[in-house]
């Protein structure tokens, strides 16, 4: 069975002229080896130059081409048109404000990400002249999987708690907080815990698990957050039951 053409049903919204979004249909040629991103690029190059969307690397590294394909948060550069029926619905990532067409506003995520200090906080006073801080393969293996995050926001788009609770820090940022907390070179747990262990942090997660199902990089945010809850709870009980301890 060979297909000649397929149809894209694309979410359109122009803040300068539209009050409401609308869906526009495009007939495009079918190619067995096309990604959904290639199909969008065909529309942009040949049919409608006004269509706006983000993309860059075309190889699931930059994390900028995430969209809803038939309602599922997906990297359009990681989804082949051949895996879909003859009509493919493409919408901007759910749970984010739409700037224009398929482009969402990421400001909320960016500020939340910064708030959990996703970088190594090294407070010991070893001078640089003492050389680099070495790490064993076992110490690397502890957090290695979580370094795969490309901030594509698919997990936020899949997370019901992010859509229900405006202040929830959300999967990727909490995962990155955990990634640094468990890094043997890092001493920043307590600085992050104020945010991570708050009602807006891990405790707003109800373990739907959708984040891990849609993650294109196998990062498994749900695992990071559950393990973060255990760490945070241990810290809480130590602080309240053993106030004399140094935590």
């Amino acid at each position: 069975m060979s297909r000649e053409t397929i149809e894209l049903v694309v979410f359109r919204y122009n803040p300068e002229t539209d009050c409401e979004p609308a869906y526009q249909r495009y007939q495009i040629p079918y190619h067995h080896d096309w990604l959904v991103l290639d199909a969008l690029n065909y529309v942009k190059d040949h049919l409608d130059r006004s269509l706006s969307y983000r993309w860059s690397c075309h190889m699931a590294v930059c994390g900028s081409c995430g969209m809803m394909i038939n309602g599922e948060p997906t990297l359009t550069c990681k989804a082949f048109v051949r895996d879909y029926a003859d009509s493919i619905r493409i919408e901007p990532l759910a749970n984010f404000p739409v700037e224009r067409d398929l482009i969402v506003n990421q400001d909320d995520f960016m500020s939340k990400l910064a708030s959990v200090k996703p970088y190594i906080i090294d407070t010991d006073d070893v001078p640089l002249s003492e050389g680099e801080e070495l790490q064993t393969p076992a110490e690397l293996a502890v957090f290695d999987q979580y370094t795969g995050c490309i901030n594509c926001l698919l997990c936020y788009s899949a997370c019901p708690q992010y859509s229900l609770s405006a202040d929830f820090i959300g999967p990727a940022a909490l995962t990155l907080a955990h990634r640094y907390n468990i890094d043997s070179r890092d001493d920043g747990f307590r600085q992050r815990e104020e945010r991570v262990g708050s009602d807006d942090g891990v405790w707003q997660c109800s373990f739907v698990g959708a984040c891990s199902e849609v993650c294109p990089k196998g990062v498994d945010p749900a695992a990071a957050i559950q393990q973060g809850k255990i760490t945070s709870a241990a810290h809480y009980f130590k602080k309240h039951l053993m106030p004399w301890s140094d935590s």
Partner: peptide, 10 residues
Amino acid sequence: MNTGPLVRQI
């Protein structure tokens, strides 16, 4: 007219 970013309600 500029309505700004579109917030979709659930």
